[in-house]
Each structure stands twice: as C-alpha cells, then as structure tokens.
Amino acid sequence: MNPTPIEHHRRHLAEWLAERALDHQLAEPPVPSTSAPPLRYDGAQSAPRPGGIHLARPSGPAWGPVYVLVLEIAESGVLVVPFGRYATPAVPGEWHSGIDAAPLRVLCGWNSRAVAAARLLPGAVKRVGVKALAEHRLLCEAVGAGVPPAAHLAERLGPPLVHPADPRYAYLDEERERLDDHFPVVREQDDSATPSRWLLAAEGRPRYGSGHGL
C-alpha cells in the first residue's frame, strides 16, 4: 500500500531531522582564525550560462563549498538557485534536483538570488539538460510566488512547515546567512513590518493569512 501524503512527508522530515542532528554532532567548535576571508576576484573567467552548475567563490573559513544552478542571465546579474547541504528537501521551498551526486541532491528555491558572475568560480562543474532546467525554473517560480506547482513537480518538494516552534526555522536562518556570506546582499534601511519574501517562499505560503498552515 502506498503511503499517504502525510506519511510520506513525515518519513522525509524524520530523515531530514536525523541528518540535521548528525550534522550538529559532527560540527567542530569554532577555532579562532588568523586568516582573512579571501576577497581577491580576478576578472578572467568563462561567463556562466543557464543550466550550468558552478561553485561559489569561498567565503571565509567556516563554510564548505556552495554549489549553485544558473537559471538565467538577467540585467540584475546571474540568477542562481543554491543546492542544499542535506540529502532531503527540508521545506516546501526546496525540492529534489534529480541529480545523484551527493552535493547536488536538493535545490533551495527559497534562497535563489541574482549574483555577480565574479562571485562564481570559473567553469561549470556540470550542466543540466534543457528539460530539467525548464522544470527547475517552473519550481523556482512557483516557490517564489507561493503557488503550488503541477502535481508531478509538487511531489519533489519538501514537507510542510506549519508548527510555530519547528526546528527548521533555525536551519532557514543559517542557510540564509551561508548564502549571504557568499553573495552579499545590499540591504536598504527598512523600518517597515513587511514579511521576508524568502521566508514565505521557504514556508510555501504566498502571504500572511493565505490559509496555508499558520
């Protein structure tokens, strides 16, 4: 008998939580570093193209490699969606990439952004096909808008995030910080109480009061 959707989500969330707990156990205490973050960026590199998977230039000693998929080249920069660190999508804003390689299994649409090409290491590590790229674009758009994608794509998304004290919120902040460190965002002075679009995208809700979860 096939599992019900909620059983399916619970199994994936259990796997994700266990992997997350393991990750915390494996973390070494931070060691004071005598090194400065690498900030040299040479201009000589091949231009990224849609469908290419690139490594971000390293940012300080704390983070492991960050892989991103180039969705398109826009005026504002290279629109990329980062790959996550774990084997299972954590939230409705993440999905299975369909790629077997361990560092490339999950895409985090909620954390997508336009970046400067100079922030990527030259040369793609791999390319995804035209059909796969089109699916990732559809998923990224759906996640950004907070609308459900087509059913066959929705199966790839992570489990719902509905409980106010869910530990995945801390993970989302950590992932946001990881990407911000690699691709600094210019923040405008903002005293308004508007919600963070990225957090709503991660939760899978378009805006407050939509009836989704909380």
Binding site: A36, P37, P38, R40, P58, P61, L104, L121, V125
Partner: peptide, 21 residues
C-alpha cells in the same frame, strides 16, 4: 560531482579558499 575533470572542481574551491589567508 562526476568522474570528469570538471566534476572535481571542488579542488579549485579548496585552493581558492587559501587566497588571502
């Protein structure tokens, strides 16, 4: 990421990580 040379670009990342350190 795969068995080609491009799939081993994590080595570039490791070396780039030492820049400025």
């Amino acid at each position: 990421v795969n068995r080609t040379r491009a799939g081993k670009r994590y080595k570039d990342w490791l070396f780039a990580r030492t820049e400025g350190m």
